[in-house]
Amino acid sequence: MSRADTSRAGSPRAGSPRARVSRAEAPSAVRTPSPLWSFGLLRSELLITFRRWRTLALLGVLAAVPVLVGIAVKIETSDGASFGGGGGGGGAGPAFISQISNNGLFLVFTALAATLPFFLPMAIGVVAGDAVAGEANAGTLRYLLVAPAGRTRLLLTKYATVIAFCLAATLVVAVSALAVGALLFPVGELTTISGTRITYAEGLGRALLIALVVAASLVGVAALGLFVSTLTASGIAAMATTVGLLITVQILDQIPQLDALQPYFFSHYWLSFADLMREPVYWDDLVKNLGLQALYAAVFGSAAWARFTAKDITS
């Protein structure tokens, strides 16, 4: 990693022509857009990312969370008592946990509520932080840029891959929770948190919608991670920075004195996905959340672009 940092100090004559070449190439790549070629790049990126042991391990850990929650609730309620109901201790644990023993579908919501604050964004941070910096670290970034892709397109491909991972990670949690919930607990009609009843099919629809919203909630962290990743040539440093920022923001979000700033923290509206379980759905916070994620994606996406397209790639 230190090599990458010091390489900047190397001869500018060696760096500049290369940068100039790739910049000159970018327009030509735009002029001959080959969508097939772009898809090829995206496909190879996706394959590389999802074949990594690291990625598979992350997904495995995420899939294990609903299993653990499900088994814990099953043991807790095996004597027939409803979870948290007897002791009047409602409010402990993640959202919806008291309803799991009555309807397995709630395990999906609980699992997402449990993983969204840390597990999911941490996984995203690892993948996003690794996206550019990892290539630089491994010395493969310059070979990628030799292909007539253009840096902008490469960056977009990287971002698309990270977004695909967001979706995959969320769906892994949701599907695992759905399966565990259906195995361990009864399923059927369910009661929304507003007290109205919906059919199981509609409940499944809402679960899917919630999974999509949760995936979209991670778009901001993904952009942030990608930007950090363009700043350094060390994959580890980028991952650590992204996860560190994530934890810092989560802590700041708990400090009441900062309530004027908190609506602008990317994690502030994360749990608003639960509003989809109200009847009628309460959209205000959901819309704010999605808008905020789009803003983070735009700001840090363009910052990543500004950094990456102007950077001297020496490794």
């Binding site: 409602g90 409010g91 959202a95 509520a113 948190i193 507003s194 007290g195 749990l271 639960a274």
Partner: peptide, 25 residues
């Protein structure tokens, strides 16, 4: 409306229901 929970008070004819979704009571 609460965080990921809701307390509903429903008056329907003769019945008055209070439902706390957080504790499921």
């Amino acid at each position: 409306l609460e965080n990921a929970a809701e307390y509903s008070l429903i008056h329907d004819g003769k019945d008055v229901w209070g439902y706390d979704s957080e504790s499921n009571e």
